[in-house]
Design a protein around this nucleic acid. Structure first.
Length: 457
RNA sequence: GGCUGCGUGGCAGAACGGUCAUGCAGAGGACUGCAAAUCCUCGUACGUCGGUUCGACUCCGGCCGCAGCCUCCA
């Protein structure tokens, strides 16, 4: 197995610290609103990676946090005049619903920041104790100059960090690059008692503290969006390494590319922010998942209507092969082909894995013997399971009624009965009339030796 | 300006120093009452200019173009 490691900028063989306990941490959402399609790329990508890892290693501990204390949450709560818990539980629930729709399996741990305040305070105290952090005016700051490796992940040196500081430097900072570990809360803001007064954690410390609490001092894989490399992950490294006496924090850093919409960056000002919530109104979650796996995770991904309809057609082809194997019992003990697994184990190359999957489909469609069919069906299902797709009944897949369709499955079946009668009597004109009528309403007919099937276009 | 990465056929999107990616769309054929589905065949794709090499889309360098990050962003 190998991964592209942001830390070194190279593809490296993956060697876990402890093969009997592989650990992975992925930065989760800040729950202050409904999440957009880009927010779901990391969970889908790393869910797929977790599936591949679990196949290879006996124990994988995968943690993805929920950030439930943050100034954007505070703002949302203030706007609605409710406690932040109302906001965070609402959007965390929505997040979980969407994840389920996208076929994302639950993680082994889902730490929340508000449940780890003591751990956060403890880590800050240790950082102060070792001279890597200092308290000033109710704040506690991490002193970046105290950590020689600062900037290594994002490949920034002191000069460029200084040059890039585009926010005015707070007077209590010793150095422009220093960042907040703890900040004071006013009476109307959420806060917790601490050695530095009532306050709340800064943005980066929570991941370091929760990763430590759930996975340990050193973890194998840390994932997240490309944009988190700096400052978030750079700061996590600084906090964790310094809190752990120099021990390596994460050994492999994996970052996914951004999702754009119609060739543009998603932004509120452009009004092109796509919520998964909304996409799910017209698209099966499986289609959305496949779109997110269509390109390599490190590359930018452009979301367009065409990409979505392509994914749907791909699933039609995949499920079509399974539908033809409906009466075949999958062979036992048969797993996804080596080439397919090898593609995923090579830096999670999902496009190549999909290519292998389609080769499998071609073989399945051509297979004659029962043995071949049984083997290919088992391989298809197992490969699909690794990608988190293809797990539903093919008939159910083709029977999903699109949002715009006026015809229910029952109505279609009725029409088909009439058509079958006409065909039996060799009344082709009547038969074709019914077919055209259905086609006009978005239903495609497929006659076969086993009878007539249909599907929504 | 600094850093990171990218430019592949109509669209999407991989690999690889010398053979087919794959999917969709398109063309022809088989099958079909006709279709659909499926199968077979096909289109001389690699931003640009040089270099290395027997041979480069693949390695190196310049140029052009694009994107992200540079302290609230997945």
């Amino acid at each position: 197995m190998q991964f592209h490691n942001t830390l070194t900028g190279q593809k490296e063989a993956f060697v876990p610290l402890d093969p009997n306990r592989v650990t992975m941490y992925v930065c989760g959402p800040t729950v202050y609103s409904f999440a957009h399609i880009g927010n779901y790329r990391p969970p889908v990508v790393f869910d797929t990676l977790a599936r591949v890892l679990r196949r290879r290693y006996p124990s994988v501990v995968y943690a993805r946090n929920i950030t439930d204390i943050d100034d954007k949450i505070n703002a949302a709560a203030a706007r609605e005049g409710v406690d932040i818990g109302v906001i965070t539980s609402r959007y965390a629930a929505a997040y979980h619903e969407d994840l389920a729709s996208l076929g994302v399996a639950p993680t082994d741990a889902e730490p929340k920041v508000t449940e780890h305040i003591p751990q956060i305070i403890s880590m800050i105290e240790r950082l102060i104790g070792s001279g890597h952090a200092y308290a000033a005016e109710g704040h506690v700051l991490f002193h970046t100059l105290s950590f020689a490796d600062y900037g290594r992940l994002s490949k920034r040196d002191e000069q460029s960090l200084m040059a890039g500081a585009r926010v005015e430097v707070a007077p209590y900072k010793r150095h422009a690059g220093d960042f907040v570990l703890w900040k004071p809360s006013s009476d109307d803001q959420p806060g917790w008692a601490s050695p530095w007064g009532r306050g709340r954690p800064g943005w980066h410390i929570e991941c370091s503290a929760m990763s430590e609490a759930v996975l340990g001092d050193s973890i194998d894989i840390h994932g997240g969006g490309h944009d988190l490399i700096f400052p978030h992950h750079e700061n996590e490294i600084a906090q964790s390494v310094c809190a752990h006496g120099g021990a390596t924090y994460a050994r492999y850093w994996l970052h996914n590319g951004f999702v754009n919409v119609n060739h543009e960056k998603m932004s509120k000002s452009l009004g092109n922010v796509l919520l998964v919530r909304d996409l799910l109104k017209t698209l099966p979650g499986e289609v959305i998942r496949l779109v997110l796996l269509t390109g390599h995770y490190r590359q930018p991904l452009d979301w367009t209507d065409e990409v979505a309809s392509d994914a749907r057609k791909k699933l039609d082809r995949l499920y079509g092969a399974l539908r033809d194997l409906a009466d075949v019992v999958p062979a036992t003990g048969v797993t996804a082909p080596d080439a397919f697994v090898a593609a995923l184990e090579d830096d999670l190359n999902t496009p190549m894995a999909l290519a292998e999957l389609f080769e499998l489909v071609r073989s399945a469609n051509k297979a004659q013997s029962v043995d071949d069919k049984a083997r290919l069906k088992a391989q298809l299902l197992d490969a699909g399971a690794l990608l988190g797709i293809l797990q539903q009944d093919p008939i159910a897949w083709f029977s999903q009624q699109p949002a715009g369709s006026a015809l229910s499955a029952e109505q279609i079946e009725q029409q088909l009965e009439a058509r079958s009668a006409a065909r039996k009597a060799r009344q082709w004109a009547e038969s074709d009339r019914i077919r055209d009528e259905l086609a006009a309403q978005g239903v495609i007919i497929e006659d076969s030796a086993q009878g007539t099937r249909w599907r929504y276009a």
